[in-house]
Design a protein around this nucleic acid. Structure first.
Length: 276
DNA sequence: CAAGGGCCCTGCACGC
DNA sequence: TGCGTGCAGGGCCCTT
């Protein structure tokens, strides 16, 4: 479940190996990953060179000479750089042959990931990117603008923080950890939050994300960021996945409920519902 | 329009 | 042991 910190780790890792490499061939084993036309995807990318790798929210943006490849890892998407194809599995769906005899493979057990091609410079005209809100790790985020757009919403604060069109980058893990740090119940309604309170929650999110990026993201379940790189933020989790364990602050038992359709972990003593 | 639910997909943890 | 069932979830699409 790569969120902004994990995708940032993937970006940094891949960038070291891929910039300057040219794609000489592409094999697609499972084509629902690719949006639109496979043939055009291959024709346009072959002979293109990786010039840079960028990221916006949870999206990776591979920049080539003429095109950009926008990749979303969703739940379990991973890239690996391989010297040969002896260890391919049924989960390796797309294979890029590079000009140094190496292969970049895209591995995705649940096949949820997406890849989308666009002309360079047109990235933010894509439906997927153009509706995204500001990034959570942007220190200059205009919070009064964000707040004014959602202050009357009766959705939960958890649903708001998961909504990528409000602010982008947070997923289920970091929302749970943010709400614990901010000491607020995940089901608290957005319209019960003052601007000051909302700001304090966003600051908590920014601290959580900043630390997670420093530690290379979170490795839980089967998730490794990419190239076998493990994150270390899982050692910093206070509530997520910890149902039945004691709260590190007050020793109450961590609960798990469903909020906004997501498994949600919180401390019932530290995190109370709030109202104006 | 806002909000919520189903869907995509597979592996794994269960219960019997 | 082996089968069936339910669960996990980000974003898109559809319904209310």
């Amino acid at each position: 479940m790569p969120e902004l910190p994990e995708v940032e780790t993937v970006k940094r890792t891949l960038k070291q190996y891929l910039v300057g490499r040219k794609i000489i061939d592409i094999k697609i084993n499972y084509d629902k990953i690719i949006k639109y036309d496979n043939k055009r995807f291959i024709d346009n990318l072959v002979n293109q060179t990786f010039n840079d790798i960028d990221r916006y929210g949870k999206y990776l943006i591979f920049k080539f000479n003429d095109y950009s490849l926008i990749s979303h890892l969703r739940m379990e998407g991973k890239y690996f750089l391989q010297n040969d194809l002896k260890h391919l599995t049924k989960h390796d769906h797309i294979i890029f042959s590079l000009d140094n005899n190496q292969y970049l493979t895209y591995h995705d057990v649940r096949k949820f990931g997406t890849m989308e091609l666009t002309k360079k410079g047109q990235e933010f005209r894509l439906d997927s990117l153009k509706k995204l809100g500001p990034e959570i790790n942007n220190p200059n985020i205009d919070l009064s603008k964000v707040y004014n757009s959602i202050k009357h919403s009766n959705r939960s604060i958890k649903a708001i923080l998961l909504d990528q069109t409000v602010i982008t980058g947070l997923g289920n893990i970091y929302v749970d950890e943010t709400l614990f740090k901010a000491k607020i119940h995940p089901e608290t309604n957005m319209n019960e939050l003052s601007f000051e309170r909302f700001k304090s929650i966003i600051f908590s999110a920014q601290k959580v994300v900043e630390k997670a990026i420093k530690l290379g993201g979170t490795t839980i379940r089967s998730y490794q960021s990419s190239m076998g790189v493990d994150g270390r933020f899982q050692n910093e989790l206070n509530v997520h996945t910890l149902v039945g364990k004691e709260c590190s602050v007050c020793n109450s038992i961590i609960k798990k409920i469903r909020v906004a359709g997501r498994g949600t972990y919180f401390c019932p003593n530290c995190q109370k519902k709030e109202s104006l």
